[in-house]
């Protein structure tokens, strides 16, 4: 991870155009055909999710929510003797992005090792999802990713930290994720 000082120095060309010069804002999607974040694949996962439900044999589990929009995700994992994810199930409630991305993530990571899951970054998650998201919607997409990472540290039936992840802190791996909150104005 970059230190704070490095992060501040890193974007060399940040002000290559003076920041006060008004230019039309570039939209993340130049191709209008790709602008729809509700692509067929996303809606398919939303309506027909992978492993939605509870897992009675879970060895690890965790909950998370986006307090500002009310998205909720619970993930149950069953790790096998080799530390691989034998089964991963989720339950949740919320917007299309939060629920479809959870389905995509679990389908992608079942069978993977703990190391592989831990090295699966937020950027990987956004790529897996597909359509480009604005910072506000990235939070919805990254909720299940955060819950999954949290679940690896929380074995079922122990006193491991039961705190629900509230997906409103900075996402550490990249300062460009997170974005402004959707909640705090009246």
């Amino acid at each position: 991870m970059m230190t704070k000082t490095q992060a501040l120095r890193a974007p060399v060309a940040y002000f290559s155009t003076p920041f006060y010069v008004s230019t039309p804002m570039a939209h993340p999607q130049d191709n209008p055909d790709d602008q729809d974040i509700y692509q067929e694949n996303v809606l398919d996962h939303y309506e027909d999710p992978y492993n939605r439900g509870a897992l009675a044999t879970a060895t690890h589990a965790h909950d998370g929510k986006n307090p500002l929009c009310g998205d909720k995700i619970h993930i149950d994992l069953q790790l096998d003797d080799q530390g691989r994810v034998a089964q991963a199930w989720f339950e949740g409630d919320g917007c299309v992005i939060s629920q479809a991305s959870a389905s995509m993530l679990l389908e992608e990571l079942e069978g993977k090792s703990i190391d592989e899951i831990q090295s699966f970054s937020a950027e990987n998650m956004l790529q897996l999802f597909g359509p480009r998201l604005t910072p506000n919607r990235q939070k919805c997409c990254l909720l299940s990713w955060k819950v999954l990472q949290g679940a690896l540290k929380r074995p079922v039936g122990t006193d491991a930290d039961p705190i629900v992840t509230e997906n409103d802190e900075e996402i550490e791996t990249d300062p460009s994720f997170g974005g402004p909150s959707l909640g705090e104005e009246q």
Binding site: Q35, I37, G70, V96, I97, L182
Partner: peptide, 24 residues
């Protein structure tokens, strides 16, 4: 349909609305 999906969809029509709990 979740309010955020409504708002996102409406943005495609150029319509700006608020989605969320409106600080209430």
């Amino acid at each position: 349909v979740h309010a955020h999906d409504v708002s996102q969809f409406l943005d495609g029509y150029g319509v700006a609305v608020r989605a969320g709990h409106h600080c209430t």
